[in-house]
Design a protein around this nucleic acid. Sequence first.
DNA 1: CATTGATCATAC
DNA 2: GTATGATCAATG
Length: 220
Amino acid sequence: MEFNEITEAQDRLVQKSRALAGLSLGELADTLQLNVPSSLKREKGWVGMLIETALGATAGSKPQQDFPELGIELKTIPLSFDNLPLETTYVCYAPLMGNHSITWETSNIRNKLQRVLWLPIQGEREIPVNERLIGTAFLWQPSAEQEQRMKVDWEELMDMICLGRVEQITASIGEVIQLRPKAANGKALTSAIGEDGAVIKTRPRGFYLRKSFTAEILCV
DNA sequence: CATTGATCATAC
DNA sequence: GTATGATCAATG
């Protein structure tokens, strides 16, 4: 079997996720006996958790794929009326310390993005959460060209982190992957390498996929 | 109005 | 604090 062919088990998950197409979040929540928040303001991850529950992803906060046995990462993506991504896509935390031996090939971000099951969902804020419709899920594996673009960005960002320049990284760096704060609030601090090589305290950062990149993925 | 930086809930 | 799930909202 070719490395990028889909196994029967993987296909079962895809079919199961595709069966959700056309349902509203409210309808799906009803079948799972879950309450729908009137706003996502205080439950930003609610949609993702709903879909995880519906598809039987093993709940937890492990730094791994949602379906490790299938090698599949699940991502919901909010779409505008024009079917364009409304938000960037968070992937994982960025290691700010002890990362000198990590390569793109051994990185957590690459592991997660190797195979992603995307679930497009209406995300316009004017649509009540319970009325938002689920779209057609699809499995994505980055092309060699797409993976190369991600690798270039990742290496640039990791180089800056390793060289003690994390404070100089802004979200404008990176063509397809960007680095942004990722924390409960501004008080959260973690260790990183400072300009002079000493350990400093800074806000935790995470890797995100730019909207332009996920838009490209959606149109394939 | 798109983007960057900040934030919310939860588990451990 | 780390890590999961992300979207909010101030800013340029």
